[in-house]
Design a protein around this nucleic acid. Sequence first.
DNA 1: ACAAACCATAACCGAATGGTTATGGTTTCT
DNA 2: AGAAACCATAACCATTCGGTTATGGTTTGT
Lengths: 107, 107
Amino acid sequence: MRSSTDNVFKALADPTRRAIFERLTRDGDQTVHALTEHAGVSQPMVSKHLSALKRAKLVRNRRQGRETHYSAQPQALAPLVDWIGHYGAFWQNKFARLEDLLERMDK
Amino acid sequence: MRSSTDNVFKALADPTRRAIFERLTRDGDQTVHALTEHAGVSQPMVSKHLSALKRAKLVRNRRQGRETHYSAQPQALAPLVDWIGHYGAFWQNKFARLEDLLERMDK
DNA sequence: ACAAACCATAACCGAATGGTTATGGTTTCT
DNA sequence: AGAAACCATAACCATTCGGTTATGGTTTGT
């Protein structure tokens, strides 16, 4: 069983998959059909990519008649943010860690 | 030519590679030998992983006699942070200024 | 009832990937 | 000078992965 951090990283490692996720976050809810039109790959491949994203909980699906609508679940990016907070010594000193940042911003 | 975002995501998609990077950020400068002792894989594999990390500019190396010291370059995480800023609708608005934030932190 | 649309799964393929052992090039130690 | 330590590269192997076409199951439209 892969960690959720691993799942998220793996899911986002592929550019096509990232593009699908990006599109879903930008333009909201989409059917597989609609996604396929812009994905540049076949419909079965889109379905597969969506499965991978779903495993990482980055998308959710809702069946409605013969079509399946997918939507982005950006909260699933949390492990990624978390990881950056731990290991992105990047901002050390400047800001303790990204988590606090999120706390504060969450108001 | 892969985008730098793609390189970073790909580099961090592998857990062993992530572990190496984590170790370098936590404990600082390390020789290949030292890294190998904790990596759980052979020395050649560690070298390969380091190459991948280097391609993504996540690490830098400095030869010193017969040993090579590697160090983490967390600034290379910027594309990742940037990407989250764009597509992590998660915090929307709140986090919209992430980029500016980074600018400022970079002084 | 039939045809068409939508999606997921299966079967398959080539390329990329993570891993190994073997080897060779420098540098250090004795 | 010779042996040993350190590292990178090469050669190789099994698996995973991104992609395709083919197919079958529902649901919608006529």
